[in-house]
Amino acid sequence: MMFSFNFKKLFKPGILIAIIFGLIFLNFLGVLDLLKGFFYKVTSFQKYIYQISVKIKDFISWISSTKKVYYENKNLKLENLKLKGEIAKLKEKELENIFLKKQLNIESKEKQKLIFAKVIGYRFQDLNRFILIDKGVLSGVKENMPVIIGGNILIGKTKKCFSHLCEVILIIDSSSKVNVMTQKSRVFALLKGDGEKLFLDLVSTKEKVYKNENVITSGLDSIFPKGLLVGKIKNIFSSKSRVFQKIEVSSPVCFSKLENVFVIIP
């Protein structure tokens, strides 16, 4: 009887058996332990690389989010500044409207014709005190017109006028002279400036005036109408050796901070 072998069928189990014996032999020699250690180290290194990559990714995400927050804050700050500017502008308009309303109420009572003007310049040199306003001849402003602020408070009179501008000499100027009277004691006097302060001149030592009483324009000249407030009596210097008293007047106006004024049209 003849036997035939199928080598193809025996080849695959043979390879498997050879691999098994080979692995047993390698294990006996300790090679498998080396391979295990190697693959363990490779796996640990991969884990380390993975952890680093995750941290780098998180760091990049943090930078991106920080950058986004920075630009958002920057835009918010710009918007905030813009809003502050708008609020300041509206507030300025509101103050200007209050200023106008206050003076227009007085105008309706006194039947005064007023021209509103903005102060656009100052000239404080030596004892001279001038301001420059943005209204001139084309607006109806001429020389020697009274200039006041809200509350009918006198600050000066127009001097040199041009087409769109006009100089105003303030009452504290050393050359300024205004006919006035004390409101309570009804004493007439001449108001003069020395560049900084105001004084009453030509008040006899026989006249009785009072501290803190109002000083108003008397209307005895052709420029200033009667009743404009100038200030209050601050100090009274009287001496028997003098013919006239020296009386200091305090104005409620800060002349170096004027912004808006009115010119009274006769």
Score class of each variant (00 low, 15 high):
226 K>C: 13
210 Y>T: 05
120 I>T: 15
47 K>A: 15
173 D>G: 03
50 Y>K: 15
213 E>D: 01
259 E>K: 11
8 K>E: 12
56 I>G: 00
261 V>M: 10
4 S>H: 12
131 I>T: 05
30 G>N: 06
220 L>Q: 01
40 Y>V: 01
95 L>C: 06
25 F>E: 14
93 K>F: 01
74 K>P: 02
63 I>H: 02
12 K>P: 03
26 L>N: 06
144 N>S: 05
254 C>R: 07
88 A>G: 07
93 K>A: 05
3 F>P: 12
165 L>D: 14
33 D>R: 12
265 I>C: 15
62 W>D: 11
182 T>D: 14
223 I>P: 12
81 L>D: 15
75 N>M: 10
74 K>N: 05
73 N>F: 03
22 G>C: 06
83 L>H: 07
170 L>G: 02
40 Y>K: 01
60 I>C: 06
51 Q>Y: 00
79 E>M: 13
38 F>K: 00
74 K>M: 04
191 L>T: 01
81 L>G: 10
145 M>T: 00
83 L>W: 06
245 Q>D: 03
71 Y>N: 14
72 E>A: 11
11 F>W: 14
237 F>M: 07
114 L>E: 04
37 G>T: 10
73 N>Y: 06
11 F>Q: 12
257 K>P: 07
96 E>I: 00
22 G>R: 04
151 G>S: 07
41 K>H: 09
50 Y>Q: 15
12 K>E: 09
97 N>V: 00
127 L>T: 08
205 T>E: 02
39 F>T: 01
265 I>R: 14
210 Y>W: 06
264 I>R: 08
21 F>Q: 10
1 M>G: 13
181 M>Q: 12
262 F>H: 06
203 V>A: 03
69 V>G: 02
126 D>N: 13
23 L>S: 09
81 L>H: 13
111 K>L: 15
157 K>L: 04
101 K>T: 09
102 K>C: 13
224 F>R: 08
